[in-house]
Amino acid sequence: MTEAAQPSAVLTFPERKAREAGRRAAAVAAVSSRLAAFARANGGRYLLYGSAARGAMRHDSDLDLLVDFPAALHADAWRFAEDACARARLPADIRPLAWCSERFRAHVAADWVALG
């Protein structure tokens, strides 16, 4: 069997999980950069929270994101975030900050990161 014809190494389940966690962490960094630029250009901000904000992405983590933009730009900001996440193959949980209860805001404010 030639070197080119040899089967590639089989990854264990923990190895596949670690690779996916790394891919998602890299995707968060790339998406965060795009979101921050959009927010600066449009007078709003995105609030990243959860495992992505803590730098603790797992193989099954999503991007938790709050959208805080002027009302006239809210829909565009939401769509921009959805598109950026979809392109990066990064599952996302996106919601408007205005829809969040004070209790929820207080809970996630401890680790959120403002982008914008």
Rank of each mutant, 00 (worst) to 15 (best):
L65W: 00
V108G: 12
G43V: 11
V67Y: 14
A109Q: 10
A84M: 10
T12D: 02
D111T: 15
A52I: 12
R19S: 06
A114I: 06
A84V: 14
D62N: 05
L11G: 00
G50I: 14
V31H: 04
R58T: 03
S8Y: 10
S51L: 00
A29V: 01
R95E: 13
G55P: 07
L11R: 08
S61P: 04
A106E: 15
A53L: 14
A106D: 14
V67F: 14
A5G: 02
A9F: 06
L47V: 07
S101R: 12
A72P: 00
E102N: 05
D111N: 15
M1C: 07
A106V: 09
A21P: 04
L115A: 09
A88I: 03
L90M: 05
D60K: 04
R24S: 03
F38Y: 04
E102C: 12
V28C: 04
R87S: 10
A81H: 08
L35D: 08
G22Q: 10
F13K: 14
E20T: 08
A81P: 02
A88Q: 08
A84W: 01
D93S: 14
L65Y: 06
S33Y: 01
W78A: 04
R54E: 05
D76H: 11
N42A: 09
V31Q: 13
A77M: 15
E3M: 13
H107V: 10
R95T: 15
R87C: 02
R45C: 02
A81I: 07
V10Y: 00
R19Y: 11
A39W: 10
D62A: 00
L97G: 04
A29I: 03
M57Y: 08
P70V: 03
L97V: 07
Y49L: 05
A92K: 09
A114C: 11
W78P: 04
D83R: 12
R45T: 01
W78N: 10
A86D: 11
D64N: 11
A27E: 11
E82H: 11
R79I: 04
R87T: 00
R105G: 04
V108E: 13
R16C: 05
D68C: 02
A109M: 09
R95N: 10
A25F: 04
A72K: 06
D64W: 07
H59W: 03
A56H: 13
A98E: 13
W112N: 10
V113I: 11
V108I: 15
D93W: 03
S61F: 07
A75S: 09
V113M: 09
